[in-house]
Write a protein that binds this DNA or RNA. Structure first.
Length: 438
RNA sequence: GCGGCUGUGGCGAAGAGGUUAACGCACCGGAUUGUGGCUCCGGCACUCGAGGGUUCAAGUCCCUUCAGUCGCCCCA
């Protein structure tokens, strides 16, 4: 045998877990429709410059986690590390701001790439489900974004979640806050951990949610962004909360919540599941308002708000919460004995399949025992044996593997009989089978 | 980028220098050429993540490397 080539570090093949992904995608589509967000698909790679300008030069994501390469035409490409920058680019490039429908609401789903050390719920190629609403500065759209995210989780039956909410304010509030924070920290910054000293230079906001210094008096006594909101920004934040209350979306204000990406303004939020479910990487969704990004990337001044879910973390959380996807059901397994019977079986299966009944048979010329074993492996609800005798008598037995009962039927009535048995039972509730389909 | 733990068949897992690498589950074949699921019999790792070293002898010791996992940084 030749030497096996294995998957790249931090990637994974979806095999047994495909049901989780399909369930998530299904709920994503139905909830997005309810909230009237349209799907948008953008490229997996973009000009490197897009992420430098969009996500921020100083962020770790851009600094040390991007997959960047020069193509044969000497262009600088980067595999997208997040979804917003690309969607914003597409929004501008396709002049979607000129569309009469306002605000423009989109969701996206797909792989993102970050070069980092894999751990629980974190991969180098990972998937996100995200949404963006362009062109509305109202607090109500922030609240809708949060409601959308929460409704999606509810559809997945993931209820043990907490919405953490905070506001950073607009430009004026942020400037005022930054100087206050700087003044508070600058004399005693040496008392904090090494990371915080670095953060003080790059991104002082992050000192607020440092885990090492969380209980340090200097951090605890640090001013909070909320205290520096202008009246207008404070009103915005209050209206977000009023809207959430009106929709009965529970949340907690977390004054220390800041976000890692540079572009956020005003409302920021994270949705976390309990650490018991996910470990330390327990944020499954992050988002907020970004009022200047569209402009930064060359579009017209456009307020926007959005969120992003980490699909892998969602799956880990679902498993931990004992949420299982709908099984893929096999209705009938045909056991064919002999060449003539095989042809008859193929004919029957085609009839059944066109009628919406899932079925399968043996393709390896196994003996009857082997075929019965396959029917078990495939969890078939019904087993039918077709051999010379059945063909001669034009009758067969339909064996219900759940109950062990057998029903006799003529070959020509077998389909109707199975449909009758299925629709009175519970098997078909999740396979979309309808009587007389196709 | 940094740290802890781990790496034996499809899966779980013995083995801690000495001939042919336990065992369980799963799987395959047969007893049983038309009805399986029980039982019995048989099969299933030229090889212990990879490479190198020590030794008469290495799955077992040493080094390197790769991968997985958990955590840090950061993020979803």
């Amino acid at each position: 045998m030749n030497v096996m080539i294995t998957k790249m570090k931090g990637t994974y093949d979806v095999t047994d877990d495909i049901g989780y992904l399909q369930t998530i995608e299904k709920k994503m589509l139905t909830v997005s429709k309810l909230f009237q967000y349209k799907e948008i698909r953008t490229p997996h790679f973009e000009a490197t410059e897009l992420f430098h300008r969009g996500v921020g030069e100083t962020t770790d994501i851009v600094n040390k986690e991007t997959y960047t390469f020069t193509d044969r035409g000497n262009r600088q490409n980067t595999l997208r590390p997040e979804g917003t920058a690309g969607v914003v680019r597409a929004y501008i490039e396709n002049k979607l701001h000129a569309d009469p429908v306002t605000p423009q609401k989109y969701f996206y789903q797909g792989s993102m790439f970050r070069y980092e050390r894999p751990q629980k719920g974190r991969f180098r190629e990972f998937r996100q489900f995200g949404a963006e609403a362009f062109g509305a500065s109202s607090p109500e759209i922030d609240a809708e974004i949060i409601a959308y995210a929460v409704t999606f989780l509810r559809a997945l039956k993931l209820n043990d979640v907490t919405v953490h909410l905070n506001s950073l304010g607009g430009k004026d509030s942020k400037t005022a806050y930054h100087s206050a924070l700087n003044a508070h920290l600058k004399d005693d910054i040496a008392a904090l951990c090494q990371d915080c000293q670095t953060r003080f230079q790059d991104n002082p906001l992050r000192i607020l949610d440092c885990k090492v210094d969380a209980k340090h008096p200097l951090v605890n006594s640090a001013p909070k962004p909320i205290a520096y909101l202008t009246d207008e920004d404070r009103t915005h934040f209050e209206r977000v909360q009023a809207a959430l209350k009106a929709m009965q979306i529970s949340y907690t204000v977390d004054e220390n919540l800041v976000r890692g990406l540079d572009y956020y303004t005003h409302t920021v939020f994270e949705i976390k599941v309990s650490e018991a479910l996910l470990g330390r990487q327990n944020a499954i969704c992050g988002g907020g308002r970004y009022n200047h990004l569209v402009e930064t990337l060359g579009g017209p001044p456009t307020p926007a708000s959005g969120f992003a879910f980490g699909i892998e973390r969602l799956i880990v959380a679902m498993k931990a919460a004992n949420i299982t996807p709908e099984p893929d059901r096999l209705h009938v397994f045909f056991i064919a004995l002999g060449d003539q019977a095989k042809l008859a079986t193929l004919a029957m299966m085609q009839r059944f399949r066109l009628g919406g009944i899932t079925c399968n048979t043996d393709f390896l010329d196994k003996n009857i025992k082997g075929q019965f074993k396959q029917s078990e492996h495939q969890h078939a609800r019904f087993v039918m044996v077709i051999g010379d005798a059945e063909i001669a008598e034009k009758t067969l037995e339909i064996k219900d593997q759940h109950t062990g009962e057998t029903v006799k039927a003529s070959l020509s009535k077998a389909y109707d009989t199975v449909v009758k048995l299925l629709t009175k039972g519970d098997v078909c509730e999740d396979c979309d089978h309808q009587k007389g389909a196709a």
